[in-house]
Design a binder for these strands. Structure first.
Length: 156
DNA sequence: GCCAACGTTGGC
DNA sequence: GCCAACGTTGGC
């Protein structure tokens, strides 16, 4: 089973939004490195940390699970969408998405806290200038983050 | 293929 | 709002 961290701007889509919707597609990834991971490596059943970025309290806010693998992101074909890509066609889609299901909230683990934890030093997230919106998380990093959230005894 | 200019991300 | 870091674009 794989572990991931997905970034989202909570003003647009937060862990609360996901809880309400229960299951949601994860649209709008427009970065090739992130896309390639969504397309090639993210699998049904993988666990995902939901990270709130570009907001007042940045950090990991909850956990989701992947319920559908890689399919074309429909927003790339919609001219009214902010994610529209004129170079994409249904025959040759450029961007992909997966579906995720809400699992649970976590007490917010802030980016500042994560930067303090040596076990997380290798995460792209805590490195300067990081812009990756979908990133892999190792089992050790996953465990360290859940421990910070007070879930050290929970193995799922 | 190089690289400068430009646009975007994202923490603070 | 600022600005550093990074990704993308496009001329050559």
């Amino acid at each position: 089973m794989g572990y991931w961290l997905f970034k989202t701007e909570p003003d647009t889509f937060s862990i609360d939004t996901l809880k309400q919707q229960k299951v949601s597609c994860w649209e709008g990834v427009r970065n090739y490195q992130a896309r390639n991971m969504l397309r090639d490596e993210v699998k049904v059943g993988d666990q995902v940390l939901i990270y709130h970025s570009s907001c007042k309290h940045v950090g990991v806010a909850g956990v989701a699970t992947v319920t559908r693998e890689c399919y074309p992101d429909h927003t790339q074909f919609e001219p009214d969408s902010g994610y529209f890509d004129p170079k994409a066609t249904p025959e040759a889609p450029r961007w992909f998405m997966v579906d995720v299901a809400y699992q649970r909230h976590l007490p917010l683990i802030t980016l500042a806290q994560m930067k303090q934890n040596p076990a997380l030093a290798e995460m792209p997230l805590v490195k300067k200038g990081n812009r990756l919106s979908v990133m892999p998380v190792t089992a050790a990093q996953w465990q360290a983050i859940l421990t910070m959230a007070g879930e050290s005894c929970i193995v799922r």
